[in-house]
Each structure stands twice: as C-alpha cells, then as structure tokens.
Design a protein around this nucleic acid. Structure first.
Lengths: 122, 122
DNA sequence: CGGCTGTCTCGACGTCTGTCGAAGTAGAGA
DNA sequence: TCTCTACTTCGACAGACGTCGAGACAGCCG
C-alpha cells in the first residue's frame, strides 16, 4: 500500500445500487475498471460461469459443494479452486455448517455488473 | 469435433434479443457457458474494459484507433492485441476507411450479457 | 480416541496471456 | 514510385491460469 489513506471507496462491491453508469454511457475510469474487471474475469471461464449460475439459481439461496462437484468432469480440488476464484472476486460467499460448506451468491455485485453492461434500447 | 452436424446455433451472439434467461433464474447449460464465457473473459482485463467503454460510449458510434491508443501507457501493438481480443469475442467490429481504422460496439451481445447477469429486484 | 468423509491447500505440470520491439501491410500524398 | 503514417502481425519472454494428485484440516460417528 503506497497510498497512506485510500480514503475513497472507489467502487463498493457490496452496494446494492449500481456503482456506476453503463459502460456505453460514459467512459469507465481506470480505477473502476481495475475493480470490476476481475469480476468479469472470474465469469470468463465456462466452469465458473456454470458454478455461478448453479449457486445464484439455487432454490434455497445456497448450494452445498457436494452438489456442485459431481456436475462436472473435474476433480474436487479443481472445483474448489474455481470456487475460491469466485469468492475472491466477491461474487459468492461461503459458509461451513458442520461437515458441509455452502455457497451463496452476492446479488449486489451481479446487479452492478449487469447495469454496467446495460445498453440503451435505442 | 465428435458431433457430425452441430446443427443448432446454440447461442446467437448477433441476436438483439436476450439469448437466455438470467443466470440466477435457471442453470446455464454447458453449451451456453462455452459460448458466453469468452465474452466475459474479454471484458476481464482492465484495459479491454476501458477500451470497450470508450468504443461503446463514442459520440458518433465509432472511434478511431488513433484516439484509443494515446489513452493508455501501452504500445500500439499491445492496444491492437487487446482490440483483436474484443473483436474475436464478438464485442466490437472494425472497419478501415482510408488511413484509419474505426471500431464500433455490437450492442446485441452486450444486451445478452447484461440480461444474463440480471438479478430479480427481490 | 480412531477412523471416515467432505473440503481445502500445496506443489507441479503444460498452456495461455499481456507485454514489448521488430517487421509487415495498407493507404495518402508528393 | 517513393516515402510517410496508421495499424497489424510476428516472435519472444515472464508471469498467470487450469488442471491434477497428494496431503492437510475439520467435523461427524463409532
């Protein structure tokens, strides 16, 4: 950290309201791009995109890893790695309850990404 | 290619209407994920996210590469490489007119990505 | 306590990516 | 035609990424 204060929470990934106007409406500043690009990057893998969808569309709002893993032809560690990527991108949350670990989506950041990509109906 | 026909254009990136229900509404099938993930991946770099925004928000609907390049501390070849990535992801189109090359956004795919990320206001 | 199961971490591997400089191509103009 | 500018392609390199097997850790249940 070279900045001593970093006073501005440039983009708040937890906010429920869109952080910024649509990408097609105003130039995205470098700081915003630096914060949001990793989220897109995390969705930029087919496996993670499916994982994200399975988590976000879960009936109870959460899914057990044990239900996620068998849906792919990949080993447990690999799925775990992808879930970690989604976690670090702020797209999902994990919680351990007893033997199992449950993942749930963070709707706030999804909304922000969606609004960023919004295009005028023109 | 093991399939002999591949008859279904599973996802039409040029369509203006959303190709598929929101990611949080129904599990994204593997084929859809395979088609859309590259687009998210292309947006998963801060430079490309800014380039995309500069192109999509252009006043005349298009931008000259010569206006794009000086906005970054990167060499021409590097910007050219990122633009190629955006092109190959189907996010932008390029057209040469005389000396200059102009890029414009493809709103269709942007709309599809946005609708995929849409979350119920719940 | 000891063993079992579910999940994550670690280390390794081949591949892909972002970046550059050098060289190639396309068009404008003298 | 010759040269200049704008942009792309090529070749190279360091670093990041996706995947796996082996092992570590956490919680359950005898």
């Amino acid at each position: 950290m070279s900045k001593q204060a970093a006073p501005l929470p440039v983009v708040d990934l937890n906010a429920d309201a869109p952080c910024c106007p649509p990408l097609a409406q105003r130039r995205v500043p470098a700081e915003t791009a630096a914060v949001l690009a990793p989220a897109f990057k995390a969705l930029g893998d087919p496996v993670r995109l499916q994982l994200m969808s399975m988590i976000a569309s879960a009936e109870q709002g959460e899914v057990c890893v044990c239900d996620l893993t068998p849906a792919f032809d990949l080993t447990g560690p690999t799925i775990s790695h992808h879930l970690k990527t989604l976690r670090e991108a702020g797209l999902v949350d994990a919680e351990r309850r007893g033997t199992w670990v449950y993942y749930r989506a963070r709707p706030g950041i999804l909304r922000q990404l969606a609004s960023l990509l919004t295009v005028d109906p023109a």
